[in-house]
Design a binder for these strands. Structure first.
Length: 500
RNA sequence: CGCGAGGUGGAGCAGUCUGGUAGCUCACCGGGCUCAUAACCCGGAGGUCGCAGGUUCAAAUCCUGCCCUCGCAACCA
């Protein structure tokens, strides 16, 4: 119960990370950090999906060896996550020899259990695009891009996915929390009702870059099957040393974008059932980041945002903060301007400015020395304790934006509190300013501690200025936790305003 | 009837599950403060919460129908 296994999708390495992949990863990282904050033991996995046709094509396009291309791209992902303060435990690569061995072992097992059969695959193949189309996808007898297609009948291996239909429907009905948000459950159910078998092989004559089937080396495995299996191997299944796989897997949560819900909520459970393994505990699908016109961002429109650039321009924490402030689970518009506005309003004007004014007042009134706590509890401190409870509740409900809203509200109240008490009017009367300044700083301590999972770097810098180490939730939800007697000092602003 | 999401003051959004005086940020107008990053605080103008019915003492919130916008339809987070 005290463990939690969090995963992001394995990102496809045909291109570098974009705002969407960054969003998935940052959100998963924030949840991971929140649960660590709540004293859970967590395992956080991310990684890259390196096989398949598009990857092979991307390498060929650059005139590179495919493995070299993958190695290069993997580094780009690692560097991007570093720049977004992503703290993962496992960076999984599907070209590792361990992964290949495990995938083959899994396929053999499914094969031995009788869930894989040989049949013929019929489809319309576009030689120039190297893509199969179904009859219904064709436009005037050609591919949607207008390329010539020919009907091909090909021997392939199929996974008896349809056999798990009733079992999966039963699971979905018995576990209404399996998919978040629950509204997307219907989407999955309606898909499952027409469940067909899945073609899981690709002949090597067409696709070389993949893991060979253990029972027929003329074929490689379909990339989704290859990639999905990472989730169990990454948690230690079939490792030589007796791993904690079972205890992690029991508490597994997959974070994904809504577009890959079917693969995760249908294909993946069926594969697990075929392997006689338990299903993941939860699948959390988030919405998309859209451009200002609320359309999907696309390269052709040139409105792709580079997360690395954004992080460097505005700051890691500010980008993370923006991601956490949009309604979780739903689509949301994003632009550089919106991120900067959010940074200026919430982080610079509200939080950052509050830190400066309180510390300045303590310096000028109390020579920087933190006073003892006031004899009675101020209502604002009571409110800060309520905020702790609300944040915990919202995070457990995946309403991260509501958690952010509550913390912002607490900071607003603290600004208001200073305005009402106006300690600058009697700055030399220490006995009057001390309780006010202690209260304000103690509430600030709570707010900043609650923000640690979202803005890890800045919040720890603020805590350092308050003379405190990183804080746990247990510490955060107590009042009067400042170290009386130590000397604090104002330093340069943590979140300078960014001009638009 | 393919599946799904959304329509809330000028802009962008939250609130909808668990019905109870419509909230946040930006922009605009007036005032205060000068501790603070020209930041902060107070007040004001601006919304019949897409439309029409229904349930209820009470509906942005629940039910029904309709209109409009947008995604997805199997390797694109």
């Amino acid at each position: 119960m005290n463990k939690l296994y969090i995963t992001t999708p394995l990102y496809y390495v045909n291109d570098k990370p974009h705002a969407g992949t960054a969003y998935s990863t940052v959100i998963a990282d924030i949840f991971n950090r929140f649960h660590q904050f709540f004293s859970k033991e967590t395992l956080f996995l991310t990684g890259v999906d390196e096989h398949g046709q598009k990857c092979q094509q991307a390498a060929e396009g650059k005139n590179m060896d495919v493995q070299d291309h993958c190695d290069e791209m993997a580094q780009v992902f690692i560097k991007t996550w570093e720049n977004l303060s992503i703290k993962y435990d496992v960076f999984y690569r599907t070209t590792s020899s361990e992964h290949k061995q495990c995938v083959q072992k899994a396929l053999q097992k499914i094969f031995d259990r009788g869930f894989i059969y040989e049949s013929t695959y019929e489809g319309w193949y576009s030689v120039s695009e190297e893509i199969f189309y179904k009859e219904k996808d064709l436009v005037d007898g050609k591919s949607p891009q207008g390329k010539l297609v020919t009907k091909i009948t090909e021997k392939n291996y199929f996974f008896k996915m349809s056999q798990f239909k009733n079992q999966l429907i039963q699971h979905l009905q018995d576990h209404p929390d399996f998919i978040y948000p629950s509204t997307r459950q219907n989407e999955v159910l309606s898909f499952v009702k027409n469940l067909e078998d899945l073609c899981i092989s690709r002949p090597k004559s067409r696709l070389k870059w993949g893991i060979p089937l253990p029972f027929d080396s003329d074929y490689v495995v379909y990339v989704w099957v290859d990639a999905l299996l990472n989730y169990i191997f990454g948690a230690g299944l079939w490792k030589e040393s007796d791993s904690d796989f079972e205890s992690w897997w029991k508490e597994s949560v997959h974070f994904i974008g809504k577009d890959i819900l079917i693969t995760h909520a249908v294909y993946w459970p069926c594969l697990l059932m075929a392997l006689d393994l338990p299903l993941p505990k939860k699948i959390v699908s988030h919405g998309w980041l859209l451009n200002q016109d609320l359309e999907k961002m696309s390269k052709s429109q040139g409105d792709i945002l580079d997360p690395l650039e954004l992080a460097q321009q505005i700051g890691h924490d500010s980008l993370r903060y923006f991601f956490s402030s949009v309604r979780f689970g739903h689509d949301a518009p994003i632009s550089q301007k919106m991120i900067i506005q959010e940074h200026n309003q919430s982080l610079a004007n509200n939080l950052g400015n509050l830190v400066q004014r309180v510390l300045t007042l303590i310096e000028s009134s109390l020579a920087g020395t933190l006073p003892p706590p006031p004899s009675s509890l101020h209502p604002l401190q009571e409110k800060s304790m309520e905020t702790c409870e609300k944040v915990s509740k919202y995070i457990h409900e995946f309403s991260i934006h509501m958690a952010v809203f509550e913390i912002t509200e607490l900071l607003n109240q603290t600004n208001k509190f200073l305005e009402e008490t106006a300690p600058w009017n009697f700055i030399s009367e220490k006995d009057k300013t001390a309780p006010i300044l202690y209260t304000a700083l103690d509430v600030l301590r709570v707010a900043v501690s609650l923000l640690q999972p979202i803005i890890p770097n800045a919040s720890q810098e603020v805590l350092r200025r308050l003379g405190l180490p990183p804080q746990s939730f247990e510490q955060t939800k107590k009042v009067n936790q400042l170290k009386s007697g130590i000397v604090v000092k104002k330093e340069s602003p943590i979140f300078p305003r960014v001009r638009l």
